[in-house]
Design a protein around this nucleic acid. Structure first.
Length: 476
DNA sequence: TGAAATGTTGGGGCG
DNA sequence: ACGCCCCAACATTTC
């Protein structure tokens, strides 16, 4: 029996368009698919609770799919280099295939694995397939990494037009097994599952796993991508793709998404969002510190001032601004939030409450099923104004104006903030302006059944401008 | 992938 | 008929 090759699964929990698996299968040798769960990564972020729930479902689905092909997923816990070296020794493997990832912790972990295996005389082969274009394959005319989205997007589009670069690999139809499988722990032992009630809530909303991902992609394509272009900013309509958690875990590759949707004439608005995802990974690859440090260092001395009570009101959806509370409650219940509302709650936290963007990023990391280190850091820095090509600091969203513009009939707010559902469309986004009579008619006792606004937006806006101006002035 | 303040214009009411 | 004022509606500037 020839010696086996290992395939290390990370954020690529699929069988189709999987370059590392494809290469391993192509060797004609037995293949050992494996996953290593590191509870305490030395450098990098352990997944939050919503992500862990998703990961559990995705790994179970991957194991099922592998078993249908006569293979299985070997699961280990601990540091990747230790676990993988152990499996390599035990199985007599001669090579490891895996995909490249872009965060500092992921890069460091891969380097440690490579070193550990080299000492055992085992070759490691890193493949690219989590992005449309590798971060070092796309540069400005001057050869430097892009820092501005629009030119990045233009360059990316040009590269993606070359259709041959976008060919995606079919899933293997058979995977040969080693004569003996190395030891594996049961998925349950990873302790990824939250309590039963939480699992049930999330399970009612999502289908983790490659099959669920492909169904979601088909559903989005069938629903009409034209509707996305027209309605994507309206959180009350279900017009977004909700593909983010599938992309985050790599149940779906961006190439597959582009191949499926690009031929459609109205796809450009959606593909632009895919490009933002690419840009985030591009930035993270070139600026690993952006996870917790402003890309624009002038923003390091802003005097944040939010209290724990305010932060808690934000997290729990009790700010008194219905659109903000709707978003935060959708997040807490479903592990997801509509993109437009993410911008609004982000602006509210960072500008109206003057809480550090990192505190928002931490909560999102803990609660989002699509929590992605690159996108999370980039987008929070965008909101705070301290990122590359970020929103200017004086761009402060008005939660009422935005709500009236993008949730004009209050459908989104009524779904998530039932306390105020009895208010008219005119008042639904601003309960504090309702007369006592109108409040009584809607069954609202402001301050008791639903909070008064925790800040006055007009005052908060002025305070944010002043605070930012002062912080930036220190870096003249 | 804003919002608010400020400036400009033009129509209509009115003396 | 005319000037004056008011104020939408739109444009520009500022944060």
């Amino acid at each position: 029996m020839p010696s086996p090759v290992l395939v290390w699964f990370r954020n690529d929990l699929r069988l189709a368009d999987h370059a590392a698996l494809g290469a391993a299968v192509a060797t004609g040798r037995p293949v050992i698919p494996l996953y290593v769960h590191d509870d305490e990564p030395r450098d990098g972020l352990a997944p939050g609770s919503a992500s862990r729930w998703w990961l559990n479902g995705s790994l179970a689905a991957l194991d099922d799919s592998l078993r249908a092909l006569g293979s299985r997923l070997v699961v280990a816990r601990g540091s990747p280099e230790h676990a993988i070296a152990g499996i390599a020794r035990e199985s007599g493997a001669t090579a490891l295939h895996h995909h490249r990832q872009y965060g500092a912790g992921d890069v460091a972990a891969a380097a440690r694995v490579h070193n550990a295996l080299r000492e055992l005389g085992i070759e490691s082969i890193e493949h690219a397939s989590s992005l449309l274009v590798e971060p070092d394959a796309i540069t400005t005319r001057g050869g430097t990494p892009f820092r501005v989205f629009t030119p990045f997007h233009r360059a990316l589009t040009t590269l993606v037009q070359d259709a041959s670069a976008m060919v995606s690999l079919p899933a293997p139809n058979a995977i040969s097994s080693p004569s003996r499988w190395p030891r594996s722990i049961a998925l349950d032992e990873l302790g990824l599952q939250p309590d039963a009630a939480r699992s049930a809530t999330l399970g009612a909303r999502w289908n983790p796993g490659e099959a669920g991902a492909l169904r979601a992609l088909e559903a989005f394509a069938a629903r009409g991508i034209g509707r996305y272009a027209a309605e994507r900013d309206h959180p009350g309509r279900n017009s977004t793709s909700a593909l983010s958690p599938h992309l985050r875990t790599g149940e779906l590759s961006p190439r597959q998404v582009v191949a499926r949707l690009e031929p459609h004439p109205d796809s450009s608005a959606f593909l632009r969002e895919i490009a933002w995802r690419e840009f985030a990974h591009h930035l993270l690859a070139h600026h690993p510190s952006m996870i917790d440090t402003p890309l624009d260092e002038r923003f390091a001395s802003i005097e944040w001032r939010a209290s724990d009570e305010q932060l808690d009101a934000w997290r729990m959806g009790r700010t008194g601004y219905p659109i903000i509370d709707a978003g935060m409650r959708e997040l807490r219940e479903t592990g997801w939030m509509h993109n437009r509302v993410r911008m609004l709650v982000g602006s509210f936290l960072v500008k109206d409450l003057l809480a550090p963007w990192q505190s928002g990023a931490e909560w999102f990391w803990e609660t989002l099923v699509d929590a992605d280190a690159a996108s999370n850091a980039m987008n929070w820095q965008w909101v705070a104004g301290c990122g590359a090509d970020a929103a200017p600091y004086f761009r402060i969203f008005n939660p009422v104006a935005q709500a009236e513009r993008f949730d004009p009939d209050g459908a989104y707010v009524r779904r998530w903030v039932p306390e105020v559902e009895g208010l008219s469309d005119r008042l639904i986004h601003r309960p504090w302006t309702a007369s006592p009579l109108e409040l009584a008619a809607a069954g609202i006792d402001l301050g008791r059944t639903y909070p008064e606004p925790i800040v006055d937006h007009a005052e908060a806006r002025a305070r944010a401008l002043e605070t930012y101006r002062r912080g930036l002035a220190m870096h003249r």
